[in-house]
Deep mutational scan, measured.
Amino acid sequence: NKASVVANQLIPINTALTLIMMKAEVVTPMGIPAEEIPKLVGMQVNRAVPLGTTLMPDKVKNYE
């Protein structure tokens, strides 16, 4: 099972992601793969992401 990116804290809307905000966890359904964490640093979320929520591609601005 592959790990996904999960919010390590509440991430407010329009916040630029940092390493400390994210952790890798095996979750269902799968979100953004954990190996993409370095790519996500500096990207902004387009909505608030509660603690423990899986980061889905549609929650990150300009994620492809």
Rank of each mutant, 00 (worst) to 15 (best):
I20R: 14
A24N: 05
P29G: 05
N14G: 10
I11W: 03
A3P: 12
N62D: 13
N1A: 13
N1F: 14
L51C: 14
S4I: 04
P50V: 08
N46K: 11
V5F: 04
Q44K: 11
G42E: 03
P57L: 01
Y63M: 02
I37M: 12
K2F: 12
N62P: 00
E25S: 11
K39D: 11
N1D: 13
T18P: 01
A24F: 06
G42L: 04
M22R: 00
A48W: 10
V49M: 08
T54Y: 03
V26I: 13
A3F: 10
D58P: 00
P38W: 10
V26P: 05
G42M: 03
K59L: 15
P50D: 09
M21Y: 05
L19G: 06
P12S: 06
E25N: 07
I32F: 04
E36Y: 11
V6D: 02
R47G: 13
G42R: 00
A7E: 02
T53M: 13
V26F: 14
A34M: 06
N8Y: 07
G52N: 09
I20W: 11
I32M: 04
V26N: 10
N14D: 12
R47V: 15
A7L: 03
I13S: 10
K61P: 04
N62G: 15
L40Y: 02
D58T: 06
V45C: 07
P57K: 06
A34L: 04
T54C: 07
N14S: 06
T28A: 12
E64C: 15
N1I: 14
E25T: 08
K39R: 14
T53G: 12
N1V: 14
T54Q: 02
L51E: 15
D58M: 02
P33E: 05
M56Y: 09
I37Y: 00
I13H: 06
K23I: 10
I32E: 00
N46C: 13
A24Y: 06
S4H: 04
G42Y: 04
V27C: 07
A24D: 05
M22H: 00
I11A: 01
L51I: 13
I13E: 14
I20A: 14
T15V: 10
A48P: 13
M43P: 01
I20D: 14
V6H: 01
T54E: 04
N1W: 14
P33S: 10
P57Y: 09
A48Y: 09
P29F: 08
P33H: 06
L17I: 12
V41S: 01
I11F: 03
N46G: 05
K2D: 08
N1C: 15
V45W: 00
V60N: 01
A16W: 12
V6K: 02
E64N: 14
L10V: 08
V26H: 12
M21F: 05
K59T: 15
T18F: 05
R47K: 14
A24P: 10
L55I: 13
L10K: 07
Q44M: 12
L19T: 08
V45M: 00
L19E: 09
N46A: 11
L51G: 10
G52L: 06
N62C: 13
T53V: 11
A34W: 07
R47C: 15
L10C: 14
L55N: 00
N1S: 13
L55K: 01
L17C: 06
I13A: 15
N46R: 10
V6Y: 03
T54P: 07
L55D: 05
E25Q: 14
L40E: 01
G52A: 02
L51K: 15
M56G: 07
P50T: 08
G31R: 00
V60L: 12
N62W: 09
N14L: 09
L17W: 00
I32K: 01
T28L: 12
V60M: 05
I20E: 14
K2M: 12
P50F: 09
I20T: 12
L17P: 01
M43E: 04
P12N: 08
P29Q: 06
N8P: 00
G42A: 04
A16I: 14
N62E: 09
I37D: 02
A7P: 03
S4A: 01
N62S: 07
G42K: 00
E64P: 13
K59E: 15
E64D: 12
P50E: 10
S4D: 03
M22K: 00
V41Q: 05
G31L: 05
M21V: 05
A7M: 05
V49R: 00
P50W: 09
P12R: 07
P38K: 09
T18L: 08
V26R: 10
P57Q: 04
M22C: 06
R47P: 08
G31W: 04
K23Q: 06
